[in-house]
Amino acid sequence: MALLEVNHLNISFGGLHAVDDFHVSIEKGQLYGLIGPNGAGKTTIFNLLTGVYKPDEGIINLDGQDITGKSTIDINKAGIARTFQNIRLFHQMSVLDNVKAGLHNHDKYSLFTGIVHTPKYFKVEKTMNEEAMKLLKVFDLDKEADILASNLPYGKQRKLEIARALATKPKLLLLDEPAAGMNPNETEELMDTIRFVRDNFDMTILLIEHDMKLVSGICEELTVLNFGHVLRQGKTSDVLHDPEVIKAYLGE
């Protein structure tokens, strides 16, 4: 059963079709890739899926629920979380508090409770601390829980961003160029992390990536975009060997 169904998605900026009749179907538990040249419309699609942009036309269904045009907050609550090409952590907050920021989507208390520190406040905080530490341990970040996020090495900042996204308890995780800026060893470790997340969190993952080693190594299916259009979709090995894809994207 498809977790994400997108049909006839369109958006224009100043008369230019940034995304034109985009469609994709992603099954539950799938690790899916979205690739294409710079300016092909990949990040625009992520922004449409997460409510940053509202489409001119088209339907976005998540797990049977129409989320087209909803706010970013409502879409996150419905089950989509994302990371960014340029890491967006709360750099002056601790590693632990970054993850707890994601947990606030589900474990909440009122402003009054937070100010007065009622028993409910301490109960919720204790629960969030325990949940956050469990997530940090999964990513081998529990020993750095109390340090500032800005003091983590680059590769660990990537892991923390994924951990924070998972704290919102999504059904679909969007990874925007997760390997950007990583060296080969960090990329290998990242591939293992992404596989682990999919397999152990019952997660469906859609990623944008330019690193073809990562794409071919972990993605089961791909969509290739070119100038906002779907150029090719299908099994990863078939897509990457398609002459049109090679001509448009791989430059060979």
Score class of each variant (00 low, 15 high):
residue 138 V to A: 12
residue 99 V to R: 02
residue 164 R to E: 06
residue 160 L to Y: 04
residue 151 N to S: 11
residue 142 D to F: 03
residue 132 A to D: 03
residue 94 S to Q: 02
residue 78 A to N: 04
residue 156 K to D: 14
residue 108 K to R: 11
residue 84 F to D: 04
residue 107 D to Y: 14
residue 81 A to C: 06
residue 145 A to V: 04
residue 125 E to Y: 03
residue 126 K to A: 15
residue 141 L to Y: 06
residue 87 I to L: 10
residue 93 M to P: 01
residue 123 K to R: 10
residue 168 T to W: 00
residue 156 K to Y: 11
residue 92 Q to H: 15
residue 80 I to T: 00
residue 159 K to H: 09
residue 144 E to K: 13
residue 110 S to V: 10
residue 154 Y to C: 10
residue 83 T to E: 04
residue 139 F to T: 02
residue 136 L to F: 08
residue 125 E to Q: 12
residue 151 N to T: 11
residue 143 K to M: 14
residue 109 Y to I: 11
residue 92 Q to Y: 11
residue 91 H to D: 13
residue 151 N to W: 02
residue 164 R to M: 07
residue 157 Q to Y: 07
residue 104 H to K: 08
residue 101 A to P: 01
residue 148 L to G: 05
residue 151 N to C: 05
residue 94 S to I: 12
residue 167 A to S: 10
residue 121 Y to C: 04
residue 133 M to W: 05
residue 160 L to M: 09
residue 146 D to C: 07
residue 153 P to C: 13
residue 103 L to D: 06
residue 115 I to Q: 07
residue 116 V to N: 04
residue 168 T to L: 01
residue 164 R to G: 08
residue 168 T to P: 02
residue 162 I to K: 08
residue 128 M to H: 03
residue 94 S to L: 08
residue 141 L to P: 00
residue 97 D to V: 05
residue 106 H to C: 06
residue 124 V to S: 10
residue 141 L to N: 14
residue 164 R to Q: 07
residue 114 G to D: 13
residue 99 V to P: 05
residue 147 I to G: 09
residue 161 E to K: 07
residue 143 K to N: 15
residue 88 R to H: 12
residue 92 Q to W: 07
residue 121 Y to S: 14
residue 126 K to W: 02
residue 121 Y to W: 12
residue 132 A to F: 03
residue 161 E to M: 06
residue 120 K to I: 02
residue 169 K to D: 08
residue 131 E to A: 15
residue 76 N to H: 00
